[in-house]
Amino acid sequence: MMVLEDLEVNGEEGSKMEIELKEKNENEIVFIIRNAEVPFVNAIRRIAMMEIPKIAIEDVNIVKNDSTMFDEVLAHRLGLTPLFSNLEVIEGLVMSEDCDCDDHCPRCSVSLTLNKTGPENKEDIKVVYSKDLSSTDSKIKPVYDTIPLLKLKKDQDVELEAVAKLGFGKNHAKWIPTTVCSYKQYPKITFNEDLEVDYECAEACPRGILKTDKRSKKIKVNNIENCSMCKSCVRASENDYINVGYEKNNFIFRLETDGSMDPEEVLLKACDVLSEKAEKFITFCKGGKV
């Protein structure tokens, strides 16, 4: 049952959603969303994980595999190897279900080949890396060159063709573009000034956010965004001096990708997918055919 309070929109009237960038590097982005709702933020998160098209190896035609690794294990490892799938790179590729070919064709897939022979010497072991995969499309290649795929001994060969296709995270984990994609509500730490200061609670913080300041007889909060809301401090406190809560409509969103696409691109695509769905509702309401 939905309580009326849950339907309350954005607290104060007229407050608009704001986004502030906190951290950004190659594979990760952290930002704060203010004045938003859980269902909305969660929709973005779920779409970013499950409904972004990404390219990954789907079929493997093994011509020869003399190594001690089983064919299916090798195929699984190849599938999990991340391939570059920036929007620019996958532009023009269609989903294999939407393609009119029988199995696969250059319009819906990219083929990669792996051809390696074992070492000359009997004692040596040769490791085959992801960089040994040669692609027909120079842009679609493994993100990391150093992923060990299998090992070969003398007189052992491996020869295979791997077919990479577009897919969605909801069908297989190899198509999930994100590793960490999560949000938490903005922490709020309050002190009950009527009570005596309890320094015990500051020491209990496992992340060292709380600092005692004996001069001003207060506990100071450093970098509140790092608070995991574990409430160790609340449990350590004998009186109710400290309280840990959260701001209902403010969120810290963290998105990390596996390197196959930029985190901004994942977000951008997620918004596209969401608006596409909303668009369908609009056409439906206007009496159009969905």
């Binding site: 690794m69 490892r77 999990l80 190897t81 991340p82 992801s130 993100v143 990391y144 060159d145 150093t146 992923i147 060990p148 299998l150 090992k151 984990a173 999930i176 994100t178 590793t179 960490v180 990390e256 596996d258 390197g259």
Partner: peptide, 20 residues
């Protein structure tokens, strides 16, 4: 052989294995 990705979060940790 080391798994290609981290079992819990999916980060391709095997790429760092040789250096480690």
């Amino acid at each position: 052989m080391i798994p290609v990705r981290c079992i819990s979060c999916g980060k391709p940790i095997s790429a760092f294995f040789d250096e480690y």
